[in-house]
Design a protein around this nucleic acid. Sequence first.
DNA 1: GCGTGCAAAAATGTCAACACTCCTTCTGCC
DNA 2: GGCAGAAGGAGTGTTGACATTTTTGCACGC
Lengths: 235, 235
Amino acid sequence: MNSAHLAPVQAVDATRSVPLSKVLVDALEGMIVAGEMRPGERLNEQQLAQRFGVSRGPIREAVRALEGAGFVEAVTNRGVFVRRVTVAEVRELYDVRAALFGLAGRLLAERASEATISRLHDLVSAMELAAAERDFDAYYPLNLVFHEAIVDGSGNATLAAQYRAFVKRLTLFRARSLVQGGGLAVSNREHREMVAAIAARDPVWAQEAHWRHVASAKDRLLKVVRTETHGEALG
Amino acid sequence: MNSAHLAPVQAVDATRSVPLSKVLVDALEGMIVAGEMRPGERLNEQQLAQRFGVSRGPIREAVRALEGAGFVEAVTNRGVFVRRVTVAEVRELYDVRAALFGLAGRLLAERASEATISRLHDLVSAMELAAAERDFDAYYPLNLVFHEAIVDGSGNATLAAQYRAFVKRLTLFRARSLVQGGGLAVSNREHREMVAAIAARDPVWAQEAHWRHVASAKDRLLKVVRTETHGEALG
DNA sequence: GCGTGCAAAAATGTCAACACTCCTTCTGCC
DNA sequence: GGCAGAAGGAGTGTTGACATTTTTGCACGC
């Protein structure tokens, strides 16, 4: 990485009872997701160790965890690099995400409580209001909460964890800013249908609606990317 | 772990160019999947280091990777333990696996080559023959190859990797031996339908057929487990 | 006999140093 | 002037040792 965009030696909290490697996983993941370290950039163990005020051991352990999560790629004797996510991989990630989100919708339709359904209703209404007023700053966090409520409400912790992992991996795609803000009206129509399917206790309809919601987000993103880059791979 | 079922100091291949931590990930994962280390058992770093003839550093790195993959669980200052997979988690894993496999079927129906379809046909025929003769030793590897061909043929490497990870995680469930060998005739009827849906180029049908195949395997396993254990959690 | 508390042993968390590999750069030769 | 090869530096791979925490075993007291 460039030492240019690095704060001047900010030691990580030395609070014991939580190992440094765990703290470092969050710290490094945060740096990557926030774009502080860009795709293709190398993670210099010595620099990172000095920056966080630790030795290389915990850094290496944290990096192994990040490797398994798909955030970085290790090359023997060369170092670890922030993964480059190509357009092809974005398509793959969205497809898997669609399948997972579809499952969440299906499970939710089978076992959602009335309170959950009413909460989802409220969130969609709030989002519609924000969208009508073009208030993106209000819309975005609501959208996030809405999706979190769905995967958490599915009652399948494994699914929720996997879904979150894939969403995070998608943030590695540098063109991610292109998609947000687009198609708010379309999104909300889809949100309405999703909640309707859940409220109707129709698992198949719910799965299909949730699946399509992600698929249409994929289509919107790919369409923008294609017109801007003519299909070439970018990281 | 008990030193009882450990071979007397078997050093890991010292071939460089591939880091010890990578080799150890495979070695440890193999030990866990093979049941050499049982759920709940602790992975003693010093013992493992001595056993493989390496220091604790690479062992710890490998363990971090296994933790992310869901094979072990680390407790601060206490050690890492082979994960216990409860019946509830098995249900979760199967549901996610069903979603992933359904996606594989859908993608395959959209883009499978004629050669792939004909290969799947042949595999199903071979499995039917093996099932008719009650030849489990022949059936099992064919079944494995069949499922591998489907996830690989989907053209989605991310999906294939995730699917394999979930299958491996399911092997942590100690009652796994209960399911195999059961319902061969049912399985083959499902296999036939899956291939038929792919050959018909019907993504929705294929997805549904592939989904149901996993769901029915889940039901068979849970039914056996429930009658044997009356629903209590087991690792 | 049983529970409490202390001490020793074991195991994990972390660090600093060494070994080897890869890349850069400089030098010498054609 | 350009290219091949060697020397140097930078960085990863690995190790052994130290510090702290947890566990275990035992003695003591109730």
